[in-house]
């Protein structure tokens, strides 16, 4: 029996469609060949295989919806696996392991106000939570989304952002670090958006994902606004290979980001020197 099973054997999935989100980021929609949904929770990731090139971890950006047999990832072209992914055509196969890791605590969020803080590609995993909530909009309180991008060219999911900003029941604020001539919106790092919103700290949960340097500053600002540590959830990126808590690459002090994370409650990592 042990010879038959190995957690390293990926399941097959087929590329259904591709959509360019920015110069370097593409949205991919896959379906598993076994016909089943991924059955993930928002915040989890999968290990994607391109045989002969390798494996790389990607957040699942689609929400878990029972009737949807597809899943989506949004990938920045930056190295070997990500380039190979960009070269795929509809009908091509990939391997999938997972979903792996912890997820955002959806039950805790019910009935609460939500503050999403997305830096750059951090919007990708948060979109899974957000779109799930939009689908069940009446189950949640206020929804606020802050998005920070380096420059207007790197913005992703622009259509969705524009659609959401038209809605009464979602507040969207965007900023870019470095504007260009086309940009009419806010300029500055993401922390400059926080003073522009009003929250009820006791009733608000924060979900934030962004580049490593973002967390320290944004968490400090959130605390200043009166949000307690146990209401702040972050997703951390690390180098990953196995996704099984074995290979060691993703360690954060004594934790394995791939099994203990990637989503952490800030309370659980506040004392870890290597986390933030």
């Amino acid at each position: 029996m042990k010879n038959k099973f190995s957690p390293y054997v990926p399941r097959l999935a087929t590329l259904k469609s591709k959509k360019k989100l920015s110069d370097y980021v593409t949205l991919f929609r896959f379906e598993q060949d076994n016909g089943r949904p991924l059955a993930h929770s928002p915040g989890q990731f999968i290990q994607v295989s391109i045989f002969g090139i390798g494996e790389a971890p990607f957040s699942i950006t689609s929400p878990p919806i029972r009737e949807h047999h597809y899943f989506e990832i949004a990938v920045r072209k930056i190295g070997s696996v990500t380039t190979a992914l960009h070269n795929l055509k509809p009908g091509d196969k990939i391997g999938v392991r997972g979903p792996y890791g912890s997820s955002f605590p959806m039950q805790k969020f019910i009935g609460k106000d939500m503050l999403f803080i997305a830096g750059g590609l951090g919007f990708i995993p948060l979109r899974s939570v957000l779109n799930y909530m939009i689908r069940h909009r009446d189950e949640y309180g206020k929804i606020m989304l802050l998005v920070g991008t380096r420059n207007p060219k790197e913005r992703i999911f622009i259509d969705q952002l524009e659609e959401m900003s038209k809605r009464e029941d979602i507040k969207v604020l965007e900023t870019v670090d470095v504007p260009d001539e086309t940009w009419k919106g806010n300029v500055g790092v993401i922390t400059t958006l926080l003073p522009k919103i009003t929250i009820e700290p006791e009733n608000t949960y924060v979900a934030m994902v962004g580049p490593p340097i973002m967390y320290k500053f944004v968490i400090a600002e959130c605390k200043k606004m009166g949000i307690s540590e146990d209401k702040i959830f972050v997703s951390l990126e690390r180098r990953m290979k196995c996704g099984l808590g074995k290979c060691g690459h993703c360690q954060i002090n004594g934790l394995s980001c791939c099994v203990d994370g990637p989503v952490f409650c800030y309370t659980d990592i506040a004392s870890l020197e290597e986390a933030i």
């Binding site: 390293y8 045989f51 002969g52 196995c242 290979c247």
Partner: peptide
């Protein structure tokens, strides 16, 4: 110590490979 890396290797004919 037990940390490891995982990589792929492909044969000359680009038909088969191993991880």
């Amino acid at each position: 110590c037990y940390c490891f890396d995982i990589q792929d290797e492909v044969d000359d004919l680009l038909k088969k490979g191993k991880r």
